[in-house]
Design a protein around this nucleic acid. Sequence first.
DNA 1: AATTCGGGGAT
DNA 2: ATCCCAGAATT
Length: 367
Amino acid sequence: MYGKFKAVVLIWKLNNEDEHLEKIENTDLKPIGNKLLKWYEKNARDLPFRQTKDPYKIWICEIVFQQTRINQGLGHYTNFIERFPDVKTLAEADENEVLLYWKGLGYYSRAINVHKAAQQIMNDYDGIFPHEYEEILKLKGVGKYTAAAVSSICFNGRVPAVDGNFYRVLSRIFADDFDISNSKAFNYFSELAHLILPENVGDFNQAMMDLGSEICKPKNTLCGECPLNQDCIAFLTNKVYEFPVKTKKIKAAGLELKYYFVHRNGEFLIQQRKDDFIWKKLFEFPPEISDELVPFIKSVKTVNHKLTHKNLNIEIYNVEVGSEEAWKHFIAENDYIISDYESSHQKSFPKPLENYIGNYHTAYRIL
DNA sequence: AATTCGGGGAT
DNA sequence: ATCCCAGAATT
């Protein structure tokens, strides 16, 4: 067979049509990485975390932007760094406040893990962010990608930070149909990346992200402006949109939830979610009520949420408790938090409260 | 090895 | 509607 990477073979074929396959081993692909670096010097996006090599800030930004578009997470990143400017501040913070700053960003275990990892750094590393890839990898919520990113950007580690952009860019350059859904894809594309890896790996990793985001996009690529278009087998053979190859299918599912907006005199009840399923440890209205409150149900409305690959349908029951007796009894019987519209903003709801109970002026009348 | 965790933007 | 995104943890 061809050897380790059929991509290398393809490039070799383009350049050495009549030569023997042994030439493969001598194929030098480093110019590709250096071209990318040169492009990055002039075309790097101006992002807040590009001005620093503080491992704390780079780490936080890598966590925030996992599976998250830059524009979506920028505000959260800025607010988070402002409130928790260093490891110590984060480690000493209350978990619920960390969650508050993560509100609306999704994947809430990231917030829980980033908080734990900060305490990990204080306890296990004397408050000094670990420099070695293998040590960074031990931090809660830090996987191979994030460890590689922090290591390369902050500590000159020679590790490609293989993410979705790497899959897309590399699979196109090499017209490589390796299935990116395969669990071996990370290692496969890591090795592929090493073929073009330049000296400055930190910039290279960020350059790949910028190229993937601005030029080598999933759709509407700007191949004409791509610094690597003459190295890209997919472009040269007009097959850009055939890569990357991804086989896994997404199954659609529905989810129905019920909430009870139990209120009296401007106060209402909330509680904190468990550490499992969605919206880990965020706050919400009670999902059920006791029979004694059923007579106080005045109306119901439906709210639709978008949840990845799921249609989420929420029914919100408006329970206006007229009887102080029933109100106090219900509170005593259950472990609920009494809140109001203003103070609830200091809690981490999955969505802004307006999504459930209307805006400020109609908060108690909309249902 | 497969599934699950979000929310928003683009198409 | 469908797909994707600076992925990681869990099963």
